[in-house]
Design a protein around this nucleic acid. Structure first.
Lengths: 135, 135
DNA sequence: GTAGGGCTTCCACCAACTGGAAGGTCAAGA
DNA sequence: TCTTGACCTTCCAGTTGGTGGAAGCCCTAC
């Protein structure tokens, strides 16, 4: 299979696939004309990567997960551990965004949004953090 | 004030402040020894930037917001517009993360997490997207 | 032979910093 | 006076995960 084929089948852009080869995530063979030649197993890996990335795993985590996938003697606890760590990151991010959302929507509600210059959003942004000038 | 002073007072790392100067967000003066010399107004801008960034506004949005802040003839609707756009982005991100969280926590619950190799997390990742091989 | 698609490499760029090296400045202490 | 240490300077490189584009093969069809 050429890169266009696996791109279509994996749902990943060809550019991304070349990038994944660059960083050693897949190692397709080469045809006589220099084209990459993907095996079934490469396609499989790419699909794995696409799915893992879509769940937000980092490239490094993907690397680890693929290793575990390849290792028939793995312990599922190792996989679960990675997933749990990732879940925690997601939770932290959601928390952070929710906090932003809170503040921001509060400010938006308070802003008249008319043609006058007074604006609680700007007032908030302009407020200094609780620290004072140097002596 | 030297960079260390405004760093402490604004809560921003000195490196970040230099970077902000690089991209034209602040323009501190220079002392005879080559050190940056920050005015009160620079500190104010930096605090503004720090606050806006902490709410997740992009640097470009910060630029616009600072311009509006400086413009005494601004319409608060312009500010509100920027904030609303940003809120939408936040909502989209939260939505995306929540979806990931959903899938992931589901998989984690399904995984035994013991020393056996069977793992629904890996099984899910390994599933191909709904597309078939080429003709 | 030429037009088109697909493929190749390489280089640059995105956001928003962060780390580190090499070196100048300044105030205090021995 | 010298030195130590905390500041400060610039510049270069790296981070994450790709994306865009240029220049140039390859292959098939017409």
């Amino acid at each position: 299979m050429n890169i266009g084929d696996v791109a279509r089948m994996s749902g990943l852009p060809a550019k991304t696939i070349r990038y994944y080869e660059d960083i050693g995530l897949v190692e397709p063979m080469r045809s006589g004309n220099g084209y990459r030649s993907f095996r079934e197993s490469d396609l499989h890996k790419l699909a794995f990567l696409g799915r893992a990335r879509s769940l937000g795993f980092t490239i490094d985590e993907c690397r680890n997960l693929m290793q575990l996938y390849a290792d028939k003697d793995r312990a599922s606890s190792d996989v679960k551990q990675i997933a749990k760590g990732h879940l925690q990151r997601i939770d932290a991010k959601i928390e952070e965004l929710t906090q932003m959302r809170e503040t921001l929507s509060h400010l938006i509600r308070a802003c008249a949004g008319d043609n006058r210059p007074d604006c609680p959003i700007l007032s908030d942004l302009a407020s200094l953090p609780d620290q004072k000038k140097p002596a």
